[in-house]
């Protein structure tokens, strides 16, 4: 049993997600930074898809009722056991009655706290991930609150001191660079807007969560004039409501691009100018509000190369920890 003493800002139970129900509006969910989540599980000896805690911007305070192996990956928020500092990206032991707490956020946005045995909440539609908007999965369909008691699974747990070296960790650069494949309704933008979108440095807005990340500060995007199609709505950024890809970037009113993430709304009536490539989705999960961000144009060949590189990195992490 894991007792939540302090919950943090929006701590949720996540795994690698719930594919297969997007056509009825239930998004895939799961860890925003998949690579960090997989690594945390590998460090403690869990299967990569075990349920763990995702904590944005601030760590929780947790009390253990039995001995476990723990690892914290992702953002730089230093863990402490009974007040004693512990390293990030490294497995450590906690004993019965120990308290895990955290320092303030230094870098990145989300930590992943893996515990040997995993968080044993019920599997709903094939996953333990929390989809808070639909009150589905996770712990009672919601973010954690002080006083919650989370069931933990059985699992021996790996030894302490297992670590992943820095070159096998992946965090955004400064300014962040997100590769975007233009497409979908890209043709609705004027030539000026197509250029300025990629030229301008945007900043992550405070509205940045599991549903999507909003960016502001770039020049407003203008649209090719047209008579709006029947059913689309009157704003030039409107389309007949369509399905939204994960990572797709919509621009309501042409002002603030929103990149949809793991808890995406599955469709709607705003034009999308393109899509963040799959290899860079993890990086969005580590962006703090106000982070300067550049969108970098990318074609399918490069997206597939980046995808293969990310897989190679994951294979290297697996090999390192298996050795």
């Amino acid at each position: 049993m894991l007792e939540v003493v302090r919950a943090g800002l929006a701590t949720t139970v996540q795994d690698l997600g719930r594919p297969g129900y997007y056509h009825v509006g239930i998004p895939i969910s799961g860890a925003m930074d998949r690579l960090a989540a997989r690594t945390a599980n590998l460090l403690v000896g869990n299967p990569e898809d075990a349920a763990l805690l995702e904590c944005p911007f601030m760590g929780p305070e947790l009390r253990f009722s039995d001995a476990r192996t723990v690892a914290v990956t992702g953002a730089e928020i230093a863990p402490r056991v009974n007040g004693q500092a512990r390293p990030l990206w490294t497995s450590f032991r906690v004993d019965k009655g120990d308290t895990l707490s955290f320092d303030f956020l230094e870098k990145g946005a989300r930590i992943y706290v893996a515990i040997s045995g995993g968080i044993d909440v019920p599997v709903v539609l094939g996953s333990r991930s929390t989809y808070a908007l639909g009150a589905l999965g996770g712990f009672r369909g919601r973010k954690l609150e002080a006083g919650d008691l989370l069931p933990l699974g059985a699992g021996a747990g790996a030894a302490e001191g297992r670590t992943v070296p820095e070159h096998l960790r992946r965090m955004p650069e400064m300014p962040a660079r997100l590769r975007v494949m233009p497409g979908l309704y890209w043709h609705r933008l004027t030539e000026e807007a197509k250029q300025s979108f990629f030229e301008d440095t945007w900043k992550v807005a405070p509205e940045a969560d599991r549903i999507g990340y909003r960016f502001r500060g770039g020049r407003p995007l203008t649209f090719v004039p047209r008579e709006q199609p029947f059913g689309a709505g009157s704003d030039p950024s409107n389309i007949v409501d369509a399905a939204y890809p994960y990572g797709s970037i919509q621009v309501p009113g042409g002002t603030e691009p929103i990149a949809l993430h793991r808890d995406a709304v599955s469709g709607g009536g705003y034009m999308m100018l393109g899509t963040v490539i799959s290899a860079d989705m993890d990086l969005i999960g580590q962006l703090q509000p106000h982070t300067p961000t550049r969108f970098v144009p990318c074609d399918m060949a490069e997206a597939l190369r980046a995808r293969a590189e990310r897989r190679k990195l994951l294979d290297a992490i697996r090999a390192h920890l298996a050795a």
Partner: peptide
């Protein structure tokens, strides 16, 4: 049109 490397979008 492709929505990134994981989605095919057909209007």
């Amino acid at each position: 049109s492709f929505g990134g490397d994981e989605h095919l979008f057909v209007e």
